[in-house]
Design a protein around this nucleic acid. Structure first.
Length: 334
DNA sequence: ATGAATGAAAC
DNA sequence: GTTTCATTCAT
């Protein structure tokens, strides 16, 4: 495969044996650093750590989320709760980054691995407990969360793959949320009926030229694939009806009357039937925008693209909510 | 197998 | 501009 040749030309510097410290319970950075002065050096078998008093936390906690991997950069992506080691590693970095010379995080990871294995059980337990707490809080905060890893293939599949994956992931998350809410309505059920998409064996997805129109591509992957072996992927035909009367989760809980339905067109992509009288969209700034007056009409992929370029959101029932993801973040930017 | 964090280095 | 790396652990 890829002749990766050891990229290991870079190398380590040295270990600074040190120890742990802390982390914000949610797994987010806590800004507290005490010390642990790490002598940048060597082989000191750092004995016992322990000093992490709790302070973590709230120093104002600015925005917690940072450095989101691009392939998971979706508006409502929920990260996994950190495990004990991750908490340990984060603390280690937090406490030592200013004093150690090592900058290569692969090496940092190696060091942490060693330290971790050498860590006294009692200290380990501290992190284990923190991880448990983080997990519990995570559960409270995201009751419907389900870890749904993406296959590597999907992540690296060429062509607009990345974007599609983001979209797909967002979709899965969204659906997961909706399902968790016990969807009921039927509008979306109808909306999502994909006629033959699920019976349609192979759709030449890759045939499409990477026009970069994400939106146009979106349905091709999400709706037409329908392959059962996709971990976490919920075939469209299996998606239960959406409760349109229930408050929409996340950003759109204030969407009034969910408009009409969405329709997946194998050839042209996403089409949504929008009742302009009951629909509106708003910009990231929060500014509301009234839709152009007129009778209910189809909004096609092209339109969505326009919206996207315009940086506007288009709430349209269940799929519309999902569709908004397309407009979000990196999409409208570049 | 993936992704939780991290950011330099490699594509 | 995006992915890989290196680690442990939970899913």
């Amino acid at each position: 495969m890829t002749p990766i040749l050891t990229t290991t030309t870079r190398r380590s510097r040295r270990l600074s044996s040190q120890v742990p410290v802390r982390y914000d319970e949610e797994g987010w950075e806590a800004t507290d650093l005490l010390m642990y002065l790490t002598t940048p050096v060597s082989e000191a078998p750092s004995p016992a750590p322990s000093a992490f008093s709790h302070s973590s936390t709230q120093s104002d906690t600015p925005s917690p989320r940072r450095h989101t991997p691009s392939h998971r950069r979706t508006p409502e992506h929920v990260p996994r709760p950190p495990n004990a080691f991750m908490l340990f590693r984060s603390d280690y970095w937090r406490e030592n980054k200013d004093t150690i010379r090592e900058r290569d995080h692969r090496e940092i990871s190696r060091i942490c691995g060693e330290l971790w294995r050498a860590l006294p059980p009692a200290e380990k337990q501290v992190y284990t407990d923190k991880a448990i707490s983080a997990k519990e809080e995570h559960l409270v905060k995201y009751p419907d969360y389900k870890f749904t890893p993406m296959s590597r293939q999907k992540k690296t599949r060429r062509v607009v793959s990345r974007d599609r994956d983001i979209i797909e992931e967002a979709r899965r998350e969204k659906i997961g949320m909706l399902m968790g809410k016990g969807a009921e309505g039927m509008e979306l059920g109808r909306a999502l009926e994909v006629e033959d998409t699920c019976g349609n064996p192979s759709t030449p997805v890759t045939e499409r030229t990477p026009t970069t129109t994400l939106i146009a591509e979106f349905p091709a992957t999400n709706e037409l694939v329908c392959d059962g072996e996709e971990d976490g992927f919920v075939p469209t035909c299996d998606i239960p009806p959406l409760d349109l009367n229930a408050p929409n989760p996340g950003l759109y809980n204030h969407v009034p009357e969910p408009p009409s339905y969405a329709h997946i067109d194998p050839q042209f992509g996403f089409k949504a039937h929008v009742d302009v009288d009951n629909c509106f969209w708003f910009k990231p700034t929060g500014e509301f925008v009234n839709p152009p007056a007129g009778p209910p009409a189809f909004i096609t992929a092209d339109h969505f693209q326009s919206f996207a370029l315009d940086g506007t959101y288009v709430p349209i029932s269940g799929l519309g909510l999902y569709e908004t993801d397309l407009v979000y973040d990196s999409y409208n930017g570049a």
